[in-house]
Design a protein around this nucleic acid. Structure first.
Lengths: 201, 201, 201, 201
DNA sequence: TATGAATGAGATTTCATTCAT
DNA sequence: CATGAATGAAATCTCATTCAT
């Protein structure tokens, strides 16, 4: 019981340090100090820096995903549902900036392969989740037929990028603007009168 | 003259190593070996690892941007122009995977602040470039009014994400599929009959 | 009473781990796990790793020595006695490989001085025991006059080395071959016709 | 050229420290200080502590073996040859106590397997060398038929043990006494009148 | 201009030992 | 008596950077 407490304490500190410094620049010393435990305690609870990182990201992403799913328990019409989804993701992404910053910046190499695979697994699960929603939308006739996986990826990519920009400099666009932009692009694209697109093409 | 040759030799090696390993995992030793120069020569030509990194990325991105601009010297109608732009970016992104991979993965902290600013500058320039194209499109009535900067960011985000996915596992989607997906989403969005969107909303 | 049980449990585990890994490579954690007690219990019963090591070796050697002495309660003629002694030592050495391996490999530094002295004391006692047998042999006219201590040391050295070789790779020589070799060298040496040695010399 | 100098400097220091403290107790810091180089230089020249250890032992043993062989370039009669061999080994063993102490004490586990194998290889080579001399002696009729490998092992075992004892406490026996004891045991054994051994048995 | 041996600050990790429960 | 979570000193190893040649 007490052990779990310490683990959470550590994960909290790790989230902050990892998101501020990135994996390689984050020092175990700093995490230990912030968590107010001895360095050895870090290793007593997590067998390595990589594993601590994995746990931090995984726990964070899982919490976010759980919250997203929870916020979607609604019976709204599909498009409202979609907008709600986008809104949820963006808001959570921004409010959990520790995790999302890590997620956006540190998916590169240099981390234990096993750990990287684990983290990417969580991301994949998230993309599948979006993919399924898009598939439902298509089946119900709301969305045009598209390669779901790529579309889901694209949706996540837009959100990633806009939120990262917002976190770096909030003046670039408010949260509402971001949600609106994401929703508009995903639903209707940038073109003015899509009905005329056949002419253009 | 000869010095420039050596610099290019080094930048070539650095591009490969940085893209494969990321900034922190890339070792000066390895770059020196690959460039077939002594380690001291690295420091003779670039004052630090960070500066070498900056030069690598900057040079790479500038080359890509120059190529994109070159490929756009056309008088096609706007939408064809847009599609050509997307196609160019995606193809160059994928063929210059050394640079784009770095760009996507290593924008995190842990790199000299000055260097980071320099790199981000190049990215910003790129986004401005896209932004201007979108602005032109809007002025000519092809695109609906939107916050240009966010739209440009979103466009880059989609491309980033899809190309990164392709580079990691080409089976996820062919280059053509990626171009098509990007174009479709950006132009018309995912919704089946956008005309009916008013009802939904 | 129960405490003694636990101590034996621990000493058993320690013997196995110390002999397999050596003093420095043996971890208290591993001993605790193997002994099926908590790590704290190790320290409750033995004040330090060194002391546990000392106890392990001492107990083991004392048991072996007791057995050797027991097997020698005989009235055989001296040379048979000697051969029996060699046979006993070799067999016990090999069957108690946990202890003998420690004894052969870990007499080096890096262990608490006090502990080292204790262990060396047990060894010395053993050598004195051999020495006394040799002295008796000399007094009874069976053995030529020799520095007893060195001879005893030499005898132990031969046995140590051959048994260690056998434990490492039993194909090098069977137990019987080892006993025979030790006995032959100690009794008559390697020279073919010792009577003629004066000529050679 | 200069690099070799530094390597020798390091190997010298390593020999001293390893022999005094043993592998695990020897600290890279101490070796660096004694060698008057920075710690990094140790790693620049030897990729790990284990490798430095291996190099130290291997170089030392090879030197000793070379010297032994050199001292044996003689045309003495076999038994004198044998005595000369013993004398050489014992004297070198004692004068190169750094190496021999390591060799006697640190063949245990806890060292990189690859390194251990390397060191054991040198030892095996040494034993083969002795074995060949014994074989020659047998072929020429000087020595009785015996399992060569075991005999060689036994010879090395006696020398190891007596020299180790001398190094630990020189009062136990002078170098001459040791040589005499080794020679006597190996040549004629301990028994007073070997001719009568049949009766005893 | 080019080299590469040398450096040393600093990072991760280990593990015997302690002590509150 | 027994436990095991917590500790922190200490060790190995890395690698960007320097500088004499």
């Amino acid at each position: 019981m007490k052990k779990e407490l310490k683990k959470d304490q550590i994960l909290g500190a790790a989230g902050i340090v990892f998101s501020q410094k990135g994996f390689h620049q984050a020092k175990m010393d700093e995490i230990a100090v912030l968590a107010k435990v001895a360095k050895g305690t870090l290793y007593y609870n997590f067998s390595s820096k990589s594993e601590l990182f994995a746990a931090t990201v995984t726990q964070g992403l899982n919490r976010i995903m759980a919250q997203i799913k929870a916020e979607l328990e609604s019976d709204l019409p599909f498009m409202a549902h979609l907008k709600g989804l986008i809104s949820s993701i963006v808001r959570l992404y921004i409010s959990h900036s520790e995790v999302s910053r890590i997620y956006a910046n540190e998916m590169s190499s240099g981390i234990d392969d096993k750990v990287l695979v684990e983290i990417k697994g969580v991301r994949k699960e998230f993309i599948r989740f979006i993919e399924n929603i898009l598939k439902t939308g298509e089946e119900k006739g709301y969305l045009r037929p598209l390669p779901h996986y790529l579309s889901a990826l694209a949706a996540v990519g837009i959100i990633d990028t806009l939120c990262a920009a917002h976190l770096e400099d909030p003046d670039k666009g408010s949260v509402e603007q971001i949600i609106e932009t994401v929703y508009t692009i995903l639903s209707t694209g940038l073109v003015a009168n899509p009905s005329g697109k056949s002419h253009i093409k």
